[in-house]
Write a protein that binds this DNA or RNA. Sequence first.
DNA 1: CATTAACGACTACAAGTGTAATCGATAAAC
DNA 2: GTTTATCGATTACACTTGTAGTCGTTAATG
Lengths: 124, 124
Amino acid sequence: MDELPRISDSEWEIMKVIWAKSPATAADVIHALRDNKSWKEKTIKTLISRLLQKGILTYEQVNRVYYYTPTISEEECKRTERESFLQRVYGGALKPMLVHFLQEEKLSSQEIAELKKILSDKEK
Amino acid sequence: MDELPRISDSEWEIMKVIWAKSPATAADVIHALRDNKSWKEKTIKTLISRLLQKGILTYEQVNRVYYYTPTISEEECKRTERESFLQRVYGGALKPMLVHFLQEEKLSSQEIAELKKILSDKEK
DNA sequence: CATTAACGACTACAAGTGTAATCGATAAAC
DNA sequence: GTTTATCGATTACACTTGTAGTCGTTAATG
């Protein structure tokens, strides 16, 4: 993969569904998003088409049903997004970003313990 | 401020300069970005105009020199971006996002210590 | 078989973005 | 004073994004 194309906000919604249910049909996606998104079916179809064009999805046709599969892993996309967010908003400065998130958001004490453990492990 | 408009990637570059040097002229921005961005002056002017239109900048004219000032604080914009990133990519799940960042990126042992302290304080 | 329903393909269209160039006014330089 | 250099305002233009609608084919229904 030479250059990974941008995935827009709306496209992310589609991708999250398809990553979760890997060979997914358009109907699957429509069904999965029916409740939390007020998109028309056609809108979802359009987004899927664009993801195909961008090469982020492929499909396999079985009895005239299209099964869509991601060509990029969710982890890879997430990493790209993390990098781009970190760069764009914090100029790449990791610690200040983490501090903001930690101070701003809520975490259970169990989650805090896990994070501390990760940090300790990292400390080596 | 009712609805805060989106700040695009390029616009962020401009804003970072202006936040850093609060009443800034176009020349200041052009100068600050000359090295790491290959934008033409006109491009920077356009971006500044759009930020004005969006109401994210105001200007004060002193002897035909325009001094631009942000109307929104950097912290507020960062918070918005953090929220949007967290929501879009991780569906709002804070801990997994933090785990990814912690595992993937480099931190000095001092930074690790600081983060652990923040976590401990949070634990209360 | 003919009608209809469903699906993907193609078309639509305005707003936002990246990336500038041109225009018009005015200030600085001769 | 006239020319020129600046500066912001206006215009340009293709691509992306959000948000669908229409078309043509084919499958299911009757």
